[in-house]
Computed example of a mutant assay.
Amino acid sequence: MDQNLRMLFDRAIVDEPALPSTDLAGAAMAAGTSLRRRRQRLVTAGAAAVAAIAAVGVVNVAAPPQRSAPAPTTVPAAFGMLVNKVCEFPARTTVTDAVVFLADNVTDQQRDEVNRALNANPAIRTVAFESREEALAKFRRMYADAPDLVASVRASQFPESYRIRLVAREQFATLKGPLKRMPGVDEIIGIDCPAGTNASAVD
């Protein structure tokens, strides 16, 4: 080999990076295995995310739309719509009025006993019984300009109730316990109204 060419060749060899001491094939296989594991984790995570999104979609599709009409509950939403808007229902602190909801299976005897207890209680100023039909009639008068809403509400959505006005605001706490324990009583809810106002939005 020509001396000049030999010198150039030697310089080229010197400039080349040193070969790694490890097994090249083993290193490549290890790197490939690590890459495949990372890809597998990404695929698994992606699949889980897609499954979660799909599950949410199924729940959203399967869930029935909310009813626009009030549904019968322990404290019926329909009754709450009959309370004067200037009053707080249910009351959180002080109470001027209250509604005593009777159970669906209340008997005539239980109803009469609740009526006597309310009228005999000195903490109660006035007592007024309201049947399901009377409550529905009030609802229809109040929402006469919303015929679709009125048509969707039935008397069965309004429990029988006694509407009472208290002598003093602080008496509700001591009044509620004994009344709630009476047979035929389902729930008692306080209403707080400003002075000079009525708890009922429609009379």
Results as ranks from 00 to 15, higher is better:
residue 123 A to C: 10
residue 184 G to M: 11
residue 50 V to K: 05
residue 87 C to M: 07
residue 126 T to C: 06
residue 197 T to L: 01
residue 84 N to S: 07
residue 52 A to I: 07
residue 114 V to Y: 10
residue 192 D to P: 09
residue 195 A to W: 00
residue 106 V to G: 12
residue 188 I to T: 09
residue 125 R to Q: 13
residue 109 Q to F: 15
residue 13 I to F: 00
residue 143 Y to M: 10
residue 199 A to K: 03
residue 107 T to R: 02
residue 21 S to R: 08
residue 48 A to G: 14
residue 6 R to W: 05
residue 153 V to S: 05
residue 76 P to I: 09
residue 100 V to A: 06
residue 145 D to N: 05
residue 121 N to C: 06
residue 27 A to P: 01
residue 128 A to V: 03
residue 198 N to A: 05
residue 167 V to F: 11
residue 201 A to S: 07
residue 165 R to M: 13
residue 71 A to Q: 13
residue 1 M to R: 10
residue 91 A to R: 14
residue 113 E to Y: 14
residue 165 R to H: 14
residue 31 A to D: 01
residue 177 G to R: 07
residue 162 Y to D: 04
residue 52 A to P: 05
residue 87 C to D: 11
residue 137 A to Q: 05
residue 42 L to G: 00
residue 160 E to W: 10
residue 119 N to L: 10
residue 127 V to D: 04
residue 107 T to D: 07
residue 82 L to G: 03
residue 118 L to G: 08
residue 193 C to Q: 04
residue 118 L to Y: 08
residue 104 D to P: 05
residue 115 N to E: 09
residue 33 T to V: 01
residue 167 V to K: 08
residue 156 S to Y: 04
residue 125 R to E: 14
residue 199 A to G: 06
residue 165 R to Y: 14
residue 100 V to E: 06
residue 150 V to W: 04
residue 189 I to R: 14
residue 52 A to F: 06
residue 58 V to M: 14
residue 64 P to Y: 06
residue 142 M to T: 12
residue 129 F to Q: 06
residue 26 G to T: 10
residue 108 D to M: 14
residue 104 D to V: 09
residue 132 R to A: 07
residue 61 V to T: 13
residue 75 V to Y: 10
residue 59 V to S: 12
residue 111 R to I: 03
residue 74 T to Q: 14
residue 75 V to P: 08
residue 18 A to V: 11
residue 200 S to A: 13
residue 127 V to W: 01
residue 171 Q to K: 12
residue 171 Q to E: 11
residue 154 R to D: 05
residue 116 R to W: 08
residue 160 E to M: 14
residue 196 G to E: 08
residue 170 E to L: 11
residue 164 I to W: 08
residue 106 V to Y: 11
residue 85 K to C: 01
residue 54 A to R: 13
residue 124 I to N: 02
residue 187 E to C: 03
residue 135 A to E: 05
residue 69 A to T: 09
residue 177 G to A: 11
residue 103 A to H: 13
residue 120 A to C: 09
residue 167 V to H: 08
residue 1 M to D: 15
residue 39 R to N: 11
residue 144 A to L: 06
residue 180 K to I: 10
residue 195 A to K: 00
residue 62 A to Y: 04
residue 188 I to D: 10
residue 112 D to N: 15
residue 15 D to T: 03
residue 29 M to P: 00
residue 58 V to P: 13
